[in-house]
Design a protein around this nucleic acid. Structure first.
Lengths: 217, 217
DNA sequence: AATCAACGTTTGTGATCACAAAAATTGGTT
DNA sequence: AACCAATTTTTGTGATCACAAACGTTGATT
C-alpha cells in the first residue's frame, strides 16, 4: 500500500528518500551533509536537494550551522529532555483520540506489525525494528484524524530518529521490553485508559532506557 | 534589539519577510501565491523564494495544492479545533516553564508591551495589536528556554495568524478583554499557578471569541 | 447563447552557470 | 618537524535558462 513513486516530482521523492534515511538512522548526528554529495548519491541535480534540505531544516531534522553547512543535529542532554517532554505530552493524547476510530481490522494490522517488529528485534535487525516501531505508532496516530497534532509529532520523531539509532547500535536492543502487546490488548478490550497508559509507558520506558545509557550525551 | 538585516542571506531575509506577512495577517487564506509574483514584490530572484516557500510549507503556514500551486490554507472548523487543542496543550506548559526564568526586568518589559498593545487595540490598529500580542506571548515562551516546544508553538501561530486577522477584520476587536494584565499581576506575585491559568484563559477567551463568530468556517 | 476545442500565456520544476565564502591543501619559513 | 601563509578546491548561494503542465482566452460549432 505504498504510494506509487511514479508521477511524483523529483522534489517529493527526494524528500521522502532523505526523510527515511534520517528517520531510521541511516545518517549519524554530527556528520556534515553536502548538497552536491546528496544530489549525486540520489542521482538528481542540486536544485531539488536544496529544497528538500530546507524543508527538513524547518522540520528540525537537519540543522543549518553558522558556517552555512548542513548537518544532523547533535543530541544534547537538554534537547533530549525537551523531546521526551514534548513526546509525552502529545503522543498519548493522539493515542486517546485514535481510540475512537479504531476497528477490528486496524487492531489486527497493529498486531501484525508488532509481530514483524518483534522478529526484527530478535534477529538483531535494527533498521527493521525501527521501521516497525514507527509503523506501529503512526498507524495509531494517523487514526486520530488530527493533522495538526500529527505534524508536530512527526517533527519530534525526525529529531529523535538519528539519535535512537545511534544509541541502539552502541548498546544493543536486548534490554527492550515490548509494550506494544499491552497496547493492542487494551485496544481489543476497548479500554481507553489502559491504551493511553500503555502508549505512555512505551515512551517512558524507551526514553528512560535510552536516557540511562547517556554515554553519548 | 532586532537582529540586523545586513550580512543575512537573501534566503533568510526573504523568509523573515514572508513569515511576518503571514503571521500578522497580510496574506489572506485562499489567495494563491505565485513564486514569480513574490520574487518580484520582494525584488529577488525566484530561487530564494522557492526555498522560503518550501520552508513555510513544512511549517504548515503555506499549503502545496494538487495543482502544484501554493496558497495560504483555508481554515476549516475541524482544523480550527485542532489548532485550539494543540495550543491549549503546549502554550500554558511553556508559560509554566518560563516562570522559573522570569526576572523583574522581563516583567516590566511585558507590562510595557501590553500597554503598547492596548493602545493599538483602542485605536483600531489591527496589525499593531496582532504584533503586540505576538510579542507578549513569545517573550514569555522564549523564557521557557525550550527550543523543541517553542518551534512547535511557532508553527501553530503561523497556521493561525492569517485566520485571526481575517476574523478581526470582519467583526472588530472591540469585544476583546485583555487577559494579559492578569498574567503580569500573577508574575509580580510569583504566582505560578495563577500565571499558567491566566495564559490558558487568554487562549480560551481568544479562541472561543473567534470560534463563536464562525461565519467563515 | 452555450459548449468545447485550440491557442497562447503563466507558472512550477529541474538543471546549469557564476560567484563568493569556507575548507583543504600545498609549500615555505623558523 | 611544527607552524603559518598562500593557493587550490570544495561548497553554498543566487540568478538564469529550458521545459512541461496548468490556466485563461479566443473563436468556432451546435
Amino acid at each position: 500500500m505504498q504510494p506509487s513513486n511514479s508521477n511524483l516530482t523529483v522534489n517529493e521523492s527526494t524528500y521522502r528518500a532523505l526523510r527515511e534515511k534520517i528517520l531510521f538512522g541511516d545518517m549519524l548526528p554530527g556528520r556534515p551533509v553536502t548538497l552536491r554529495g546528496l544530489a549525486e548519491s540520489l542521482d538528481v541535480s542540486p536544485t531539488p536537494v536544496r529544497e528538500t534540505v530546507r524543508r527538513l531544516i524547518a522540520e528540525r531534522a537537519l540543522n543549518l550551522q553558522d558556517n552555512r553547512r548542513v548537518a544532523i543535529p547533535e543530541m544534547t542532554s537538554k534537547r533530549f529532555q525537551e523531546i521526551r517532554h514534548a513526546r509525552l505530552m502529545l503522543e498519548p493524547e493522539l493515542a486517546s483520540l485514535a481510540m475512537i476510530n479504531i476497528t477490528d481490522d486496524k487492531i489486527n494490522s497493529l498486531i501484525e506489525i508488532d509481530k514483524k517488529t518483534d522478529i526484527a528485534l530478535e534477529s538483531g535487525d535494527l533498521a527493521g525494528y525501527m521501521r516497525g516501531n514507527y509503523e506501529f505508532h503512526f498507524m495509531i496516530y494517523r487514526l486520530a484524524n488530527n493533522d495538526v497534532l500529527l505534524s508536530l509529532v512527526d517533527s519530534l520523531w525526525l529529531q529523535f530518529g538519528p539519535y535512537m539509532r545511534q544509541v541502539y547500535s552502541h548498546i544493543g536492543t536486548s534490554a527492550l521490553d515490548d509494550q506494544h502487546r499491552v497496547a493492542t490488548k487494551a485496544l481489543e478490550n476497548r479500554d481507553a485508559i489502559g491504551f493511553k497508559n500503555a502508549i505512555m509507558e512505551d515512551l517512558q520506558q524507551g526514553m528512560t532506557f535510552i536516557g540511562a545509557s547517556n554515554t553519548l550525551l
